[in-house]
Design a protein around this nucleic acid. Structure first.
Lengths: 154, 154
DNA sequence: ATGCGACCTCAACCAAAGTTGAGGTCAAGC
DNA sequence: GCTTGACCTCAACTTTGGTTGAGGTCGCAT
């Protein structure tokens, strides 16, 4: 499968190769393909063939999952990538910016949590009324709507 | 339900009150109770009654979930708390230390990821071979077992 | 004493993210 | 030309963390 400079597939990877190289199970690749997260073409014998760029996509998927992003959301973001060619600098920068923002947000959340926690350890946190890690809705119930201490669910 | 200084229940909260004050649904409280994450007693008419300490437990559960800890794991950690009385300073310190470690670990992971990402943005990440965000298994396949860049799954 | 909202149980359902298995095909080495 | 391992499809199953609904009770205010 080598077509040269027309820009079409030069390397092709079988599903097993992709699985081995990406560290995900073959069944997972089938699943991702069904979900439209990755795509490829078929060999004459109906076997899956992928471009090398697919490895990158999978890496992106895995990292995104680590950030707690759902596959649906990841799919939406990947839509910005070419898919048919290896993502270029611009494609990459676009998606990386989103990622970076998620990372920063998430790290910020956790740091805030940590600071609160440290405060709590110091104070012994015996007072349900005063604890900054306390459930948001409780004060809200007692004092009306106000700032949330912890978001409901990420 | 006020028994005074024997140390037994002084305040009692209905499931609805707990729900309102903790911000979780009643169905979720039933669920948590079934799972053994929280407990209480029953009124003469078979209605759930909870201590105030339960609010604290729920806050802990919610915060732990934000860290990506499963309910099973949370349950195990909560086993260290009294349950029958409001957790004291020592109980609290014990569990907070675990939490803090998780937080640090998780923040560290994300920061490492961010640094790698920044490196990638700089380099344009056009080289599949060189990208530090690359899938771990691929190099492993090419070069034998080595350090992992990204853990398989948290 | 009656009505209303809050509560009860139990079973079924949901979504996400896969995994497992049955039954069948492909291709590469001997 | 046959065996073996990798591949195919499709359906069913799994786990986690709940939600929804049916059918029935509690308890408080009027």
């Amino acid at each position: 499968m080598i077509f040269g400079s027309t820009g079409k597939p030069v390397v092709s990877l079988s599903v097993g190769e992709v699985a081995r190289r990406s560290g995900v199970a073959v069944s997972t690749l089938h699943f991702y393909e069904r979900k439209g997260l990755i795509s490829g073409w078929r060999s004459s014998g109906n076997q899956r063939r992928y471009e090398r760029a697919t490895l990158r996509r999978i890496a992106i998927i895995k990292v995104s999952q680590q950030l707690g992003i759902s596959l649906a959301e990841i799919k939406a973001r990947l839509a910005a990538l070419p898919g048919d060619r290896t993502p270029g600098k611009a494609d990459w920068a676009r998606i990386a910016a989103d990622w970076r923002a998620d990372l920063d947000r998430r790290i910020g959340q956790l740091e805030k949590l940590r600071d609160n926690l440290d405060g709590c350890i110091g104070c012994g946190c015996l007072s349900v009324e005063a604890c900054p890690l306390r459930n948001p809705a409780d004060r809200a119930a007692a004092e009306g709507a106000g700032p949330r201490y912890l978001e409901p669910r990420r």
